[in-house]
Amino acid sequence: MNIFRLSGDVCHLVAIIILFLKIWRSKSCAGISGKSQLLFALVFTTRYLDLFTAFISIYNTVMKVVFLVLAYATVSLIYFRFRKSYDSESDSFRVEFLLVPVAGLSFLENYSFTPLEILWTFSIYLESVAILPQLFMITKTGEAESITTHYLFFLGLYRTLYLANWVWRYHEEGFFDQIAVVSGVVQTIFYCDFFYLYFTRVLRGSGKMTLP
């Protein structure tokens, strides 16, 4: 464990909590892509199946459980409790265009052709594109509430810190997880455009992020 990975995991947890609390307190999921949250729940489900087969550490186990619980709780807020505020009209990204290539690639490019390993690989590839419905929804509506942008900022920060974590682990341990790194770089690139808008608009105190 290193400071980059630990702070990355903390940023990830903060992002998920920001989103959950925003929906819970505002009793609305307006502007939130339910599809992205479904994809994230699927990412955690397919990645954390080893909860029952491989014990890494207390931290690892606790964080996996917390991420799973919060992911499903957020999805249930969007699709059940506050479903009247769910804007399915704007959340129109065709997720099948993500799931099919990601599933195909996870069968082609993996470390070993076993069910657990293919599901892990699927979750890695899926995570890199899971935010796209949310980013698409923001471009469609042309705006995002500032709390939603803070959620995206912390998600992007978690991914950026993971890149630093991999540099550190390669330098310190000779650790290099090619599938995770390539997929992680692609995922972080998707946030670059958002980061630009975030730093030039939201942090200028304009409150809401409106796209040009």
Binding site: R5, A54, N60, M63, K64, Y111, S112, E117, F176
Partner: peptide, 10 residues
């Protein structure tokens, strides 16, 4: 190289 079975990252 990585031990593929040991995915110790979240």
């Amino acid at each position: 190289s990585i031990d593929p079975a040991r995915h110790d990252e979240l």
